[in-house]
Design a protein around this nucleic acid. Structure first.
Length: 833
DNA sequence: CAGTGAGCGAGCTTCCGCTTGACTT
């Protein structure tokens, strides 16, 4: 039996290290954090020194048990979790758990750290153990408690003032704010007109263009020409002065170096994979995880191809550097190798640098060599990582920029000049392998790769034309996933392990949504953000996290105690929460707007945010008769809607007349979009139909189509509730409870009752709407279930469920009561539905 | 499936960071 137990966070890492340490060691993984605050109110006791109530994370229980079991048999236990704040805390939690279970008597607990996974580094780490740093653990606990307190106090304010179920937090709220403020900038943006003037020249060695750089004796600036009249006048004057040619007045050339980009961190990998491969952040992370965990490489077996993908460091290990330099000489020649390895400083604030940069585990696994063993996504991402890493250790590129100036005196006597430049590559250096993508093109990018004809001062170049072009300034672009991650990282908000999930949270809450891969805020998102920014400014400030980090650093260095730090934060924060809960008006919090008055009644028309989203109202609740309401249509926003658009909404439902049988026919917009109603039949309108203009004949046609579809629905009926039906996705079998698919080769009409029963028996139980709840996916499933259940559940179902739940709570004595009750609730609703 | 938008005030929602799998549409 191994006498030594070593614990790391990631199972893939555990496997690798196991190989290095031999059989005296058993290496186990904690799978991340092992304990966390109880996810309820009161987990941080603000009255008594911020005592924190922890519990083992359910999902990781089996891993904790495995560690405990191994610890029992080991003499020495090495806690080798990551060397950052969170890693230190994980080690501390594990040691606390082992102590609680009485497993540490007579054993040595060692804390060891390393930042690269090589046999040398691991052995050196094990040979130099230290004690747990309680200062670092304190800093982590302060971080954890603060996040909990911010989230669990701000969110309830939103439930009261804006909408139930909303959330706020130290990270998600500033992230949301960025998106909302960008949208407001765009709305407030006024495009400005400007004109550029360009000379098109015909040189014997090739045509090229030159931009106007000087006009009337002054440097030509962006807004010097802002209308067509001026621009055309300037163009005409220049053209006249030129007389069909321009004279070279100056030729200059400048050599420039371009340096390769730093090796990938999580954030830069996500950005570059978005730019070059079109991957979302979560797709990038998923693919990277696969490369990290290992890929079967033929005879070589399973090989981890890249280092850890959640990192904020640009550091490369010595062994990796040596290998990269060897490869560069081998594949690109000695001249491509700089004298010394290139070292990159980590730029991001609050970097913890627990791991290396993201790099290939071995540069010798060239993209070509491993391509056959990878799927498409893996191949693309691996190639990107490999090239970026190799390039970062290659020599800089040397570029030469040639500028040619053409001076002329225009007819009014003012000096003017045109300038052309072209950039050529003298020595490509790292560019032979890789160049970082750009978010936006600049003028310089246009010049790149352009080679001008060789020209000398005094030379006359024939002029083809002088053109004036109209342009308009553009608003700043909306954030994409990648540019949001970049902005977050620049402010030190969020961590490599959370960038992808921050984006998920904002979307799950329906604060923001992607439109052509750019983030737009929803009305709820804007309400939440503006409310928080106005009333909790300090806590959703972009540098709140940075300030917190400074304080936590002081704690981790032992210069400050964490409890006083917490008190300084908590007391004013709590006071603010209480005060705002009292004082803020709900209409103000939700961003209600008055649009004007209804021409028919003279009553005020307003837009508000209600339980079911944004709506318009005519009149107020203080009026004698009730106000009338209408939901905003998808795509409309309460911030941009006009009075006329709002009034349109009240034109529905429209009565169109009567069907042949005397049924009233009307159109309206429901939860599922526009529909026609005839008697008690509802039929959805097609996207090309407009509910405001549709007329009776077309409406009747839609209803007829629907009725026909219903009539054709039944294929077979066996009389015992088992039916074969035609559905949206083709024929299927149902017994009312669950549905079964029909094998491809089977003709639905020829099914026998026996066949149907067999297929039904084999079909999976329908989990759909109220999904069974597994511990691992607690939150996700729950959310989905609640969301779908809420509008559908009948009142009776809800009532039944809650009484059941009470019963469950009474009988169950353990702390799992709530969870059990929740499962029961789901069952109860299912039965009811 | 096709309303709603205040409320009697029950009981509910919510954070950030570390890690991986098990789920269907």
């Amino acid at each position: 039996m191994a006498k030594n137990l070593l614990i790391v966070e990631s199972p893939a890492k555990a496997k690798t290290i196991n190989k290095y340490l031999g059989k005296d060691f058993q290496v186990l993984a904690s799978y991340g954090h092992v304990r966390d605050l109880k996810p309820k109110e009161g987990a941080v006791d603000t009255e008594h020194g911020f005592t924190m109530a922890y519990e083992v994370i359910e999902r990781n229980e089996k891993h904790v048990d495995a560690i405990a079991k191994a610890a029992k048999l080991a003499d020495d236990i090495y806690l080798a979790t990551d060397l950052d704040r969170e890693g230190e805390a994980i080690s501390w939690h594990i040691s606390e758990i082992l102590k609680e279970r009485g497993l540490t008597k007579g054993k040595q607990l060692h804390r060891v750290v390393f930042s690269e996974i090589t046999p040398k580094a691991i052995k050196a780490a094990v040979a130099a153990p230290r004690q747990l740093s309680h200062d670092l653990v304190d800093a982590q606990q302060a971080r954890r408690a603060l996040d909990y307190l911010v989230g669990f106090n701000l969110s309830p304010v939103l439930w009261r003032k804006v909408q139930r179920g909303l959330s706020a937090g130290r990270v998600q709220s500033p992230a949301l704010r960025m998106i909302v403020e960008r949208e407001e900038e765009i709305e407030a943006f006024k495009a400005r007109e400007y004109w550029t003037i360009e000379a098109q020249l015909k040189h014997a060695d090739g045509d090229f263009t030159a931009r106007l750089s000087k006009l009337n004796g002054k440097k030509f600036e962006q807004f010097d020409l802002t209308n067509e009249t001026d621009a055309q006048a300037a163009r005409a004057a220049l053209k006249q002065a030129a007389h069909g040619r321009l004279t070279v007045s100056d030729v200059g050339s400048k050599e420039r170096k371009r340096r390769p980009a730093a090796p990938f961190t999580t954030s830069t990998l996500q950005q570059e994979a978005a730019r070059k491969l079109g991957f979302t952040t979560s797709r990038t992370m998923k693919v990277a995880q696969g490369l990290y965990e290992g890929v079967a490489l033929g005879d070589e077996g399973n090989v981890g191809l890249i280092t850890y993908m959640r990192t904020d460091s640009t550091m490369l290990g010595d062994d990796a550097l040596a290998e990269l330099r060897q490869l560069i000489v081998r594949d690109f020649g000695a001249h491509a190798l700089p004298d010394a390895p290139q070292v990159y400083k980590t730029k991001s604030k609050n970097a913890q640098e627990a791991h290396e940069a993201i790099r290939p585990t071995s540069a010798m696994y060239t993209p070509k060599a491993v391509a056959a063993f990878l799927n498409d996504d893996q191949r693309k991402l691996y190639e990107l990582i490999w090239k970026r890493t190799v390039a970062c250790q290659m020599i800089h590129a040397t570029l030469n920029t040639v500028s040619v100036e053409f001076a002329l005196r225009d007819v009014t006597g003012g000096d003017a000049s045109f300038r052309a430049s072209g950039t050529t590559v003298i020595d490509p250096g790292f560019l032979a392998v890789y160049e970082e993508g750009r978010d936006q093109k600049t003028e310089e990018d246009d010049d790149e790769g352009r080679r001008l004809p060789r020209m000398v001062v005094g030379e006359q170049v024939p002029l083809h034309e002088i053109a004036a072009d109209q342009h308009f300034t553009e608003p700043p672009p909306r954030y994409s996933e990648a540019s949001l991650v970049k902005a977050l990282e620049e402010h030190g908000i969020g961590r490599p392990s959370t960038y992808a999930s921050i984006i998920q949270v904002l979307q799950n809450r329906e604060y923001v949504f992607l439109d052509s891969r750019r983030f737009k805020p929803s009305d709820v998102g804007r309400a939440v953000s503006n409310f928080l920014t106005a009333h909790f400014t300090r806590y959703v400030d972009y540098d709140f996290t940075a300030k917190m980090e400074d304080e936590l650093d002081a704690v981790s260095r032992g210069e400050e105690a964490w409890v006083p730090l917490m008190e300084r934060f908590w007391l004013p924060f709590k006071q603010q929460v209480d005060e705002k809960t009292e004082s803020v008006d709900r209409n103000e919090a939700t961003g209600a707007r008055e649009l004007g008055s209804d021409p028919k009644t003279g009553k005020p028309v307003s837009v508000r945010l209600g339980r079911f989203g944004p709506y318009a109202a005519i009149g107020t609740k203080d009026d004698e008769d009730k106000p009338t309401f209408a939901s905003l249509r998808p795509g409309q926003s309460m911030h941009t809607i006009t009075l006329a658009e709002a009034l349109e909404l009240f034109k529905l439902p429209r009565q169109l007349g009567q069907a042949e049988n005397g049924d009233e026919v009307s159109v309206a917009i429901g939860r599922f979009g526009p529909f026609v109603k005839q008697g008690s039949t509802y039929a959805s309108m097609k996207p090309e139909d407009d509910p405001y203009t549709i007329e009776l004949p077309r409406a009747l046609q839609i209803v007829a189509e629907k009725l026909e579809m219903l009539a054709n629905r039944l294929i077979l009926d066996f009389g015992n509730g088992v039916q074969v039906l035609n559905g949206r996705y083709g024929a299927y079998i149902t017994d009312g409870e669950k549905n079964a698919r029909i094998p491809k080769e089977q003709e639905p009409k020829e099914l026998t009752e026996k066949q149907c029963l067999e297929l039904l028996a084999a079909a999976p139980v329908r989990k759909g709407r109220f999904g069974k709840k597994t511990a691992a996916k607690k939150t996700a499933t729950k959310k989905a279930a609640v969301k779908k259940a809420a509008p559908a559940a009948k009142k009776t179902a809800v009532k039944k469920a809650s009484t059941k739940k009470k019963a469950a709570k009474k009988t169950a004595t353990k702390k799992t009561a709530t969870k059990k009750a929740a499962t029961k609730k789901a069952v109860a609703e299912k039965v009811e539905a």
